[in-house]
Design a binder for these strands. Sequence first.
DNA 1: CAGCCGTGGTG
DNA 2: TCACCAAGGCT
Length: 299
Amino acid sequence: MTEPTFTTLVSRWYTQHARDLPWRRPEVGAWAILVSEVMLQQTPVARVVPSWTDWMARWPTPADLAAEPPAEAIRMWGRLGYPRRAVRLREAAVAIVERHGGQVPNRLEQLLALPGVGTYTARAVAAFAYGQRHPVVDTNVRRVICRAVAGKPDAGPTTRPADLVAAEELLPAEPAAAALASAAFMELGAVVCTARSPRCGSCPVASICAWRASGEPAPTGPTRRPQRYAGTDRQVRGLLLEVLREATAPVPQQRLDQVWADDTQRFRALAGLVNDGLVEQVNEASFRLAGDGPPILVR
DNA sequence: CAGCCGTGGTG
DNA sequence: TCACCAAGGCT
């Protein structure tokens, strides 16, 4: 049983060139790994590092975070984007305390049941925190395998079961080596085999890359429609949340009205924030981050 | 499953 | 400059 040359080369490259990221240090536990993986969902590494450091200093265990209201998590999230992740991460911490005695679960099924934890994150925690042999497939891994192994210019927009199978077939049999290989695939895609201008000159598998061998064909299929931001509800949500994050007292609706002129869209965005558990209405005319103060009395 | 959900760096 | 993009998840 010989390991594929591709996997061996990428793994060897990783052991020599891996970036020194704080959540990769040997002493970090599963909670720290989970926090990093959630923060890294659609957010670049460079912006995550300082936020992760602050977050772990304040909430070293799931129980520490579970004891806080959502407002504290939302503020600590800062400007990482997609702040629903902060709410879900806190909900995951609550679930970890209630269902798993405060310890991040190690079974894939239990991880998948946590809020904000999907196929990628569950496998990443199982592999990187617990050393289990699971394929860990993100956009980087799909791109790397698609190019180097399949010879196609780019992977599809979503992770499919076939992508997990393709990744699994490249993993060494030994669990620890498999986890390292997954990290190596991700690192290669993030640093060398990037989406726009791959640095094939510094790629450890350039000599056996199927994509290079076929002349580096450009993507042909329909490119994914760009996600607009300006003028969308997401922008309005961001503006509303920015005001609420910085507030130290309930914010009068009149002040929220100033962030966006369109009444219909502003109301829809605010209602969405409330629906997502990010914001709560204090009374007829004021709002605040969820749990940002004494409980609201209801009769 | 296509669309939605933030933000800031960059080629 | 301004589209594109960055370790996804959820409905």
